[in-house]
């Protein structure tokens, strides 16, 4: 079951788990796994162009952080060279690389999150907590594009009557202020009409229920349990000091034990779960289609 087909609650638990682990466990293998997991799900959800842009930005961020860290941090036991009398150490580079990996992973997970959490799913999540907030959010999401379009219309209309005078800076500011006040006037007017429509449909006559076309099914429950189970392996390992790792003063040697291997494996399953589900879905679909 892919994240988009799960109940938004499951997706929320999933992203929360993955993001927390990525942010607070500085173990390089965990971070590498997290990055690969994020890239894999983005590859399925984002368009090719969008993915390319995301990766380009990620690479830039990673290089920047790696290159900049040693300029500020002079800890570490392996100096590579000296700059202004300060040592530039291997450990500082590696630490920068680790932080870069973390930032980039978090960025890509957030990208995936924004692709999974369309506005209506966010509204659903809020709706479970407070139905009123959900309605406000829903009307706002309806309203903002309308407002933006009207702003464009006003700007276009004013342009064709030469009112966005390009004569001088002050004229332009005045023109923008005039258009802004017209936009406010329009939005009040339209809000009155919407309020009327809401009353005509019986808003405010009595107890209100909150309807959603999404439901929490058994498999959503199972999926949540699986995600939570997998995610718990990492904090347990952290508490047992199986995933301890330090960059300063010297980089820790990674030694594999049953415990940390198990935790890393569990996290790998978690990180690749959405991509795996996408692949599974496609394979299943191809199979079903072959039967048509």
């Amino acid at each position: 079951m892919t994240l988009q087909r799960c109940n938004p609650f499951v997706a929320a638990v999933y992203f929360l788990g993955v993001l927390l682990i990525t942010m607070f466990v500085p173990h390089p293998i965990i971070l590498a796994v997290s990055l690969l997991g994020a890239v894999s799900i983005c590859a399925f959800l984002a368009t090719a162009r969008d993915l390319w842009r995301g990766l380009r930005l990620s690479l830039f961020l990673f290089c920047l952080i790696t290159a900049v860290n040693p300029l500020f941090s002079h800890n570490g036991v392996t100096p590579l060279f000296y700059m202004n009398g300060n040592p530039v150490t291997l450990e500082a580079y590696l630490y920068g690389a680790g932080i870069g990996l973390m930032v980039v992973s978090v960025y890509l997970w957030c990208k995936a999150l924004s692709l999974v959490f369309t506005a209506d799913r966010a509204v659903y999540l809020f709706g479970k907590a407070t139905p009123k907030t959900a309605l406000v959010l829903s009307t706002a999401l309806r309203y903002i594009p309308m407002l933006r379009r009207q702003a464009d219309r006003i700007a276009d209309a004013q342009k064709t009557i030469g009112c966005t005078a390009s004569d001088g800076y002050w004229d332009r500011v005045k023109a923008i202020l005039r258009m802004f006040s017209a936009l406010i006037g329009w939005s009040l007017e339209s809000a009155v009409e919407t309020a009327k429509a809401m009353r005509a449909k019986g808003y405010g006559i009595g107890r209100r229920t909150a309807y959603s076309d999404l439901s929490f099914r058994l498999r959503d429950g199972l999926m949540t349990a699986v995600c939570l189970g997998l995610a718990c392996a990492v904090p347990i390992a952290v508490l047992r000091h199986d995933l301890d790792f330090a960059y300063y003063p010297a980089v820790t040697r990674i030694e594999f034990s049953v415990w940390n291997t198990a935790a890393i494996a569990a996290f790998a399953v978690l990180a690749f779960l959405p991509a795996g589900a996408e692949i599974g879905e496609r394979v299943k679909w191809n199979y079903y289609r072959s039967k048509i």
Binding site: A119, T139, E193, K201, G202, I205
Partner: peptide
């Protein structure tokens, strides 16, 4: 009413359909 635009309250078609029924407190 006249304006197709400003009568729509919510951000999804399905939610708009359900809006009146929600106000009536239906399950």
């Amino acid at each position: 009413a006249q304006s197709p635009e400003s009568q729509i309250v919510t951000d999804r078609v399905w939610h708009e359909l359900a809006f009146g029924a929600e106000n009536m407190g239906l399950e």
